[in-house]
């Protein structure tokens, strides 16, 4: 099933094998097998509560911060099991960056928002250059270049989100995880972020969770469809339905439920 559901041409950056995630004793997501290919955009889609965010948080071990969360199975990053004892979560998170659903800039200046991550990770180069470069890549430089001392909180929601993307880029990560990065944004800012993703994929591997089918089809090369089913205990359990190129998922998916979901007749 692993090789069937994951049609990857290039070498995968991240591989999930038989991944199960528990919150306490409830199995929230089961049996996820996905290969995330190098410098491509992978979209996670599926109805609310099916575990997209949960799986995403496994990829940079942000689940470590939720005391009740427990991960079973294997997640490898460039072939190394990230849950093995010789992988350091702090080091991993520098390489696998994350952008959250709600913009969450630090209550510091715009400059400090970018410089913070670099500084704590021992960046040796020219800080001004890094800040400008990151803001440029995140397509927000022109809007903020004259007010770098201003608080990051004083920006609009869309600008804040691009600042958060710039903050993630500044660490020169390998992979960027985005959990519904556009859900709080207006259509124009959304398009901006999508353009940005298209530019970034030359250099970064991107995983994006989205509820917007058009967005998934516009920005992603591969799409993983998750679904949830009711359990006997009355809860919900998420699972991976299929993962393939975005073209296949949207045009002739293997499963009927995928077909229904992407055409909007479901969920």
């Amino acid at each position: 099933m692993v090789s069937e559901t994951t049609a990857t041409m290039t070498e995968p950056v991240i591989q999930m094998e038989n991944l199960n995630v528990y919150y306490g004793s409830t199995l929230a997501v089961r049996d996820v097998n996905i290969n995330i290919p190098y410098n491509q955009v992978m979209a996670f889609i599926g109805p609310s509560g099916c575990g997209k965010s949960t799986v995403l948080r496994c990829l940079n071990r942000m689940n470590d911060l939720i005391p009740s969360a427990r991960v079973e199975g294997k997640v490898t990053y460039h072939g190394r099991d990230i849950y093995s004892s010789d992988v350091d979560a702090v080091d991993l998170r520098r390489r696998v960056g994350m952008v959250f659903q709600k913009p969450n800039p630090f209550p510091k200046s715009i400059y400090e928002n970018i410089a913070f991550g670099a500084r704590i990770n021992g960046y040796q180069g020219d800080m001004d250059e890094l800040v400008e470069d990151s803001l440029r890549k995140a397509a927000i430089w022109d809007e903020v270049k004259d007010q770098l001392k201003k608080s990051g909180l004083a920006l609009s929601g869309g600008q804040q989100q691009r600042l958060c993307i710039a903050r993630a880029i500044a660490l020169q990560p390998d992979v960027i995880l985005m959990d519904e990065p556009c859900s709080a944004l207006d259509p124009i800012s959304t398009l901006r972020v999508e353009e940005l993703i298209n530019q970034l994929k030359d250099q970064y591997t991107i995983v994006i969770v989205t509820h917007n089918m058009q967005q998934a089809s516009r920005v992603s090369d591969y799409t993983a469809f998750f679904n949830a089913e009711a359990t006997e205990q009355g809860g919900k359990q998420g699972f991976l339905v299929e993962c393939d190129t975005t073209k296949t998922i949207f045009n002739n998916p293997r499963e009927k439920s995928t077909q229904e979901y992407v055409s909007g007749r479901f969920g």
Partner: peptide
């Protein structure tokens, strides 16, 4: 807000940082 903690951790900060 815990979103600030998460932002910090996601940038590869240690708990003390």
């Amino acid at each position: 807000p815990s979103s600030l903690r998460q932002a910090g951790f996601a940038l590869g900060a240690t708990r003390w940082q």
